[in-house]
């Protein structure tokens, strides 16, 4: 890790500009787009937490369901105990982390294709449980009537306060995720991905680190689920199914999963893109599918790799195919 001083004047100025832009954005948008901005903010947390899970090289298909676990936990606590969002959010993350911890024992015995399918099966089983037990989880219709909190006279049901709130929470989570990735733990996760036998031979317990990444990633996505349900007001099994999981995959892959900011770029660009093709309605999934295929075929390292590619095209800077470890 570089111990470079990051508090240079230049960086502080850039950070201030970014912050000002983020704070000003909702004031230029229509009501509907303000909603979308909140979901986008939450989805940034979803893709970044997913990236933590994939750091070890395993792609899970249970992340969307974990978000659902968080959302259902928050909803149940709100509906039955009247707990406010401030109290339901930790439980939402905690429940997802707990389920992830339990699932570690069967799922992390598998790798690669088997882990993919195994996590898909486990997630689908959880999702079908929500559909089956109508009394507790509300069946296909799901749960509704969850409300945003009120604090110091601010009603967070309004999009702008809720946006600021979620922006704050997501930023804190992103900071933690970033620190995890750039800590010794993060380096070990990279090592397990690229050289698992070597890492194990120097005494790294690969299982434990994979479990850690899975549990922490699930915690943050559970939290994102709680954050979403308190604004949206309802949660249903279909909302958290394989369909949403596919979107997470698309965002991460189109953005590029080798860098921390890759998935963030992916989710922002594709959300804006999705809005701009809203007029095509029925065709939208197909356009998404085509974008996915084209980006896998022609831009396998994602949007994030474009600047590097351009630089190497003009013969300045490094090649874009550097292994991810070198940017540490």
């Amino acid at each position: 890790m570089n111990k470079k001083n990051i508090l240079t004047v230049q960086n502080v100025v850039w950070a201030a500009i970014l912050l000002a832009a983020l704070l000003a954005t909702p004031h230029f948008l229509k009501f509907y787009h303000q909603d979308l901005l909140i979901y986008l903010t939450i989805n940034v947390l979803v893709v970044c937490s997913y990236r933590l899970v994939t750091l070890t090289g395993e792609w899970s298909l249970i992340h969307a369901v974990m978000m659902g676990v968080g959302a259902y936990t928050a909803s149940l606590l709100f509906i039955h105990f009247g707990l406010d969002m401030w109290f339901t959010l930790p439980f939402a993350g905690g429940a997802a982390a707990l389920i992830a911890a339990l699932l570690c024992f069967p799922l992390l015995r598998m790798t690669q294709f088997y882990f993919l399918i195994g996590s898909f099966a486990a997630g689908e089983a959880i999702r079908l449980t929500w559909i089956e037990f109508v009394g507790v989880f509300g069946g296909t219709g799901g749960l509704r009537g969850v409300e945003a909190p009120i604090l110091w006279g601010i009603d967070f049901i309004d999009p702008i306060p809720y946006y600021y709130l979620s922006l704050f929470i997501v930023s804190v989570c992103l900071f933690i995720l970033y620190r995890i990735e750039n800590s010794r733990v993060g380096l070990t996760l990279h090592a397990i991905h690229w050289k698992a036998p070597l890492a194990e031979s120097v005494g790294v317990n690969a299982w434990r680190y994979r479990a850690l990444a899975f549990i922490v990633g699930s915690f943050f996505v559970g939290l994102a689920g709680g954050l979403k349900v308190h604004y949206l007001g309802s949660v249903s099994p279909n909302q958290m199914g394989i369909g949403f999981m596919v979107f997470i995959l698309i965002w991460v892959i189109v953005g590029g999963y080798n860098k921390f900011y890759g998935p963030i770029i992916g989710v922002i660009v594709l959300t804006v893109f999705d809005e701009s093709i809203r007029t095509f309605e029925v065709l939208r999934p197909a356009i998404y599918g085509a974008v996915l295929i084209l980006s896998v075929l022609f831009l396998p390292l994602g949007l994030e790799s474009i600047p590097g590619r351009l630089r190497s095209w003009f013969g300045v800077g490094s090649t874009p195919h550097e292994p991810p470890l070198t940017d540490q």
Binding site: V246, I253, P285, A286, Y288, G289, L292, I293, V296
Partner: peptide, 9 residues
């Protein structure tokens, strides 16, 4: 991932 794209189409 490509086959998921085909699925949508």
């Amino acid at each position: 991932i490509c086959s998921i794209g085909v699925l949508f189409i």
